[in-house]
Design a protein around this nucleic acid. Structure first.
Lengths: 226, 226
DNA sequence: AGACTTTTGTGATATCTATCACATTTTTCT
DNA sequence: AGAAAAATGTGATAGATATCACAAAAGTCT
């Protein structure tokens, strides 16, 4: 296992900034950096969970097989930890993680990660904070998915891409229509219809994957009321 | 603030079993035990989050206002921690917690809880494990809610009550029809129709809130396939 | 460049569940 | 015990979205 220089890494996590030089060294000795192309699998569902993954750069989707079809659980943007719940909470990976664009990730052995949790309370605390904030985010996200109709569900996610992922009202969607359907729990035909309707109402402008939000205020209203 | 004797408490959490006598004493000095009747509010949404709650005995529901109606996020049975994500992850309580039967809870000041996290890695680790397992549970629960139709959604929850809460195929539902509708995201009329259909098919026998699962295998099949 | 595969858009129809209304039953309060 | 309120069950109808089919457009590979 190659030795990564975590101390000098400019993309390390907020949590690891709490670690001493010796702790960073321990981390580096048990850490491997890997590059991924779009579509490649970073972590696979139903395999043994032996590593914590830290996403240095890129964008990924967390997916799981549901009763009827694949479900996109969440989309995460670097920098962030991936697979923490499934590695610490179970022996088997409960979901897969797929790169949505070129990405770079570091794999850390679970034993080393647990050791760092024990010897650095500040590190442990930051990780716990992240878990707590993630849970609150999941509650909000799923309640909106469950209670809104499909216009509201699509609007919510378009706003998420704009505000949280790209920081812009104009961007290339990282998902095809079928994947968007997996994200908002509908069919790909319905996604097409919604994009057509939003375009006709001058709420968005879309050409293939390139999208521009024309009436963000209206999207916010649709997102809120469903 | 009265001094609770946490050291001698027979209902303390697995996590606190890692604490030394001095740490338990610190906990006890900043801990208040309160009893609740069914329907009473243990933690209220949109109030300041200043306490961690440990449920010693009883059963509770976590609820939040959604775009259309109240959503039951989760039902939790003692012994367990409540409100961890919302107290550590935000300054405001993101959801309410209501007793579904007579319950006893201990309120711990967040500052003391954080202190214990810092001084006891084993305690911290157990709390983190709990957060991770909870997140996995939420993923499974919400994916089934999102993808199954209403028969599957009701079946899943009846099995949850039977297997995880009551450990019996015969029990009193802790929720009325409207609350069950809040749990599985449907209308109270639909809940009535489903109970009627399941009764007609000899899958369950229900009289008011008293229910007996007659064909658990069938419920499992419906839960799986929706 | 062209063939092949994948993705997308739209029309038509079917299915599922919400909503509304109302009556009945059960529970709560005095 | 009786009145009032809340909860429940059922019927009828409306609305939302899935499904199926098919054609067209876009992307990939050789």
């Amino acid at each position: 296992m190659t030795n990564e220089n975590c101390a000098s890494c400019l993309l390390k996590s907020k949590a690891t900034k709490n670690l001493k030089a010796s702790e960073l060294n321990l981390l580096g000795e048990n850490c491997v950096q890997v590059s991924f192309d779009k579509g490649e699998t970073i972590l696979k569902q139903n395999t043994l969970s032996t590593n914590i993954v830290y996403l240095k750069t890129g964008l990924v989707k967390l997916i799981a097989d549901g009763p009827k079809r694949t479900q996109i659980l969440k989309i995460k943007k670097a920098p962030c930890y991936l697979g923490l719940p499934t590695t610490m909470g179970d022996k088997i990976n409960n979901y897969s993680i797929i790169a949505l664009e070129k990405s770079v990730a570091c794999y850390v052995e679970i034993k080393v990660f647990k050791e760092l949790l024990k010897i650095s309370p500040e590190f442990s605390y930051e990780i716990m904070l992240d878990l707590c904030q993630n849970e609150l985010f999941l509650y909000k996200r799923f309640v909106k998915l469950l209670q809104n109709q499909i216009y509201g569900r699509l609007a919510t996610n378009l706003l998420f891409f704009s505000n949280e992922i790209y920081g812009s009202d104009e961007f290339d969607l990282p998902l095809n229509r079928n994947e968007i359907a997996d994200l908002i729990c509908t069919s790909r035909e319905t996604v097409s219809r919604l994009f057509t309707d939003f375009s006709k109402d001058n709420i968005i402008k879309i050409e293939g994957k390139h999208i521009k939000l024309l009436n963000k205020r209206k999207l916010e209203e649709i997102s809120k009321n469903g």
